[in-house]
Amino acid sequence: MNETLVFAVISLSAIGVISAVILYFVAQKFKIIEDPRIDLVSEKLPGANCGGCGLAGCRAFAEQLVKSSDLSALNCPVGGSEVMKEVASILGLEVEEKEPLIAVVRCNGSRVNAPQKMIYDGAESCAFAHALGTGESGCPTGCLGLGDCVVSCNFDAIYISPETGLPVVSDENCVACGACVKACPRNIIELRKKGKKDRRIYVSCVNTEKGGPARKNCQVACIGCGKCVKECPFDAITLVNNLAYIDYDKCRLCRKCAPVCPTGAILEINFPLKKEKPADPGIAVENPTVV
């Protein structure tokens, strides 16, 4: 009995020692010499591997950062300027301050504003519904509400509101990685400046149809009348293909455009309430960022 025990202990230890020696030599032979700064940099990165930087994960981004001599083209939208500053100090480089961005859903075609005309019971995927037809409201550019953006989000920052059927972005959770922007087959979601005190103004519509047909499907569609363009004192609004677009770099949040919009397609988010009544009192404007 004792003999067996001793034999087992000795043989196992011998196997262990031999394996350790082999492993040591193999490790020496296949050693990869890596820039130690890559480890330092990737420690600072958020580690969510969201791909918001355009590279395959945080490690790849760290390698790219260490390689490049100019950081202006590289940005980690999740970590924001804080993380980028730390990274820059490790690498001994300078980095510009970038304003934080947030995903904005440019459609307000809720169940009230764009009533359901058809029943869709195909696969639960915006991409498929988009390829098949216009969706339940009939608007060819409106939100389909099947949640491809929700699936794409790694940060729990977007969900479909059960009342409106539209995606809602959470101000706190959204890191502007851009995954939902890519996931949306209708290019409704855009990364825009988060704005001071989270205040934002944007045209909540991407419909390029003429006014009549657009309005037929959705009462808060942009009809391309151009009133806001004339009103804007900073030339921030452009009108292309019957659709107004507010350039967030030029916009100074003066709030002159929103009241003149005849359909209420321009949304003001997180501003204190004005006393004037809205242009068209019959329109139900849902505030998509009330979380």
Partner: peptide
Amino acid sequence: RPLLDYIRLGKNK
């Protein structure tokens, strides 16, 4: 199951 729905989408992409 909506097999063809997904296959059509897949073909498209």
